[in-house]
Design a protein around this nucleic acid. Structure first.
Length: 478
RNA sequence: GGGAAAGUGGGGUAGCUUGGUAUCCUCGCGCGUUUGGGACGCGUGGACCCCGGUUCAAAUCCGGGCUUUCCCA
């Protein structure tokens, strides 16, 4: 027996073991909060990020790459921003043995270096809107307990987009565009989400307002998997990013920024995975079909089986399907377990019986079987991949829907946040809001899109008993 | 922010109280027999987190560090 995976109910153990056993990340690098991507994990990551990048490319964003080092003077230009990050910035203080004249930060995020250059790039309204993005590593000195993909000191896959516009309305609209881009991205991954406007005390340092995308992990905690900020003119004033308007006046640009990190991979693991390992939609699975020979015949028959497998893989690959022929020495059963651990959507078995029938036995990651005649293998595989993606997508969406529960008392809310989101009434007052967080012992995510007071049975603020201004989600968070 | 536990071959562990030859499972490699849900035989490879202290002798005792995991705020 190979190493057993703990059951998914023991989420922490399951998660850590799965990262290692499925060869996503190696956590054995000897420094806190920094981890190593295995080849398989990086392959998975690339399929996910290819889609994310394409979505940006298709919506008018240009890809750029800014330096990881930020001179202190630049990082400190916007007051709220530096105040929000100064406790977790890593500093480079020396070049060799010589102390630097000005220390430099390892970027915790790239607003400040980018807007330094925006000042040079933007002169006229014809330069607007400017929309760029990059996928880079960023650094934050997390003191709390770090976790691969989720809470890191080096975030290796930070997709950050930054835009500049000629009017506030355009910036507002851009935030909406960003959110629908993230909706499309997470729909693609089959990861269900709620979008909320973060309360005033939890918005991005330097933003006018912040929207966040959250999903629910199996341990009942919300995982923030995307944010979008309207920065207004807060940064453009500090960085003097101004432009000449169409009628000859001057104005500071209106800005937005929005980001997604490798937490999106953690979400895929947590949302879809099961006791046997990863469950991946075909769109992102490094291997979409594993072809497993069952050499259980005589020599001549076995040779034919191997040949059939090879031809099948070749045919699938020609059709653009990522297929792999598993001709390793293990028994078929051992191969099944390994491919399931890695979330492979489909496997095709070819043995004596199948040769006789002229078809392969297809088994999807959820255990559903079907037959595919050798003649029609490509079409059937394509259909089965699509069907599986639909199925796990629907399953996940239903789970999330079921986990959002209206609550009108603290007792109810406390019980609900053990494994989901509590939806409660709030009068909109900050003191009352923080009090709600303390009483339930959770974070207020904010008002969720798609829910309004009128659609609920909720009328009163859970804290004050006054008329509620809005409904908000409460949850334990990562 | 506060507390607890733990670091032994690639992975999981026994040994530590009472200092002296490091256990078992898994894994890797070679050869052979196997193969419809985690095969078997034979051979073989591989470890005491780091620094310092005590001692004839340290995986074991003491101090410091690093790392990890868990719990509470």
């Amino acid at each position: 027996m190979a190493d057993d995976l703990p059951p998914k109910e023991e989420f922490s153990d399951w998660y850590n073991e799965l990262l290692f056993q499925a060869e996503i990340m190696d956590v054995r690098y000897p420094a806190k909060g920094v981890y190593v991507w295995f080849p398989f994990g990086y392959d998975l990551r690339n399929h996910v990020y290819d889609r994310l990048k394409t979505l940006h490319d298709e919506t008018g964003h240009d890809e750029v790459d800014f330096p990881v080092l930020i001179p202190e003077g630049i990082l400190a230009k916007e007051g709220e921003h530096i105040a929000g990050f100064e406790d977790e910035v890593f500093w480079v203080t020396h070049g060799g043995r010589k102390e630097l004249d000005e220390r430099m930060a390892l970027r915790p995020t790239s607003e400040t270096p980018m807007y330094t250059m925006f000042d040079l790039w933007i002169r006229s309204h014809t330069d607007l809107p400017l929309k760029v993005y990059q996928v880079v590593n960023i650094w934050r000195s997390e003191t709390e307990h770090t976790r691969p993909l989720i809470r890191l000191r080096e975030i290796t896959g930070f997709k950050e987009a930054h835009t500049a516009h000629a009017s506030y309305d355009e910036a507002v609209e851009q935030v909406e565009t960003a959110l629908s881009l993230y909706e499309e991205f997470y729909d693609f991954l089959g990861v269900p989400y709620v979008i909320t406007e973060r309360p005033e005390w939890d918005k991005f340092p330097g933003a006018d307002y912040t929207y966040a995308v959250d999903t629910l992990m199996p341990d009942g905690k919300a995982l923030q998997i995307g944010t979008a900020h309207n920065l207004g003119q807060n940064f453009s004033e500090a960085f003097e990013v101004d432009f000449e308007t169409a009628d000859g006046d001057h104005d500071h640009v209106y800005q937005t920024s929005y980001g997604v990190s490798e937490r999106c991979i953690a979400a895929v693991m947590g949302v879809h995975g099961d006791d046997n390992g990863l469950v991946l939609p075909g769109e992102i699975a490094p291997t979409q079909v594993a072809v497993v020979p069952i050499p259980f015949g005589d020599d001549e028959e076995n040779a034919e089986i191997m040949e059939t497998c090879e031809e099948m893989v070749e045919e699938l690959e020609e059709a653009g399907i990522r297929a792999e022929f598993d001709d390793s020495d293990d028994n078929p059963g051992a191969k099944y377990y390994r491919w399931e651990l890695k979330g492979t959507p489909l496997r095709a078995e070819v043995g004596p019986r199948d040769l006789e029938d002229g078809s392969a036995k297809l088994v999807n990651r959820l255990g559903d079987e079907s037959d595919a005649s050798f003649d029609e293998i490509v079409g059937v595989v394509q259909d089965e991949l699509d069907a599986l993606s639909d199925e796990i997508r629907t399953r996940a969406a239903d789970d999330l829907d079921a986990s959002i529960v209206e609550c009108t008392s603290y007792d109810e809310a406390k019980e609900v946040v053990g494994d989901g989101f509590a939806l409660v009434g709030w009068n909109g007052d900050e003191d009352a809001g923080k009090r709600i967080e303390d009483e339930v012992g959770v974070d207020m995510l904010g008002e969720p899109r798609g829910y309004s007071l009128d659609d609920t049975e909720i009328n009163e603020c859970i804290q004050t008993g006054e008329d509620a201004e809005k409904v908000v989600l409460l949850a334990n968070t990562y």
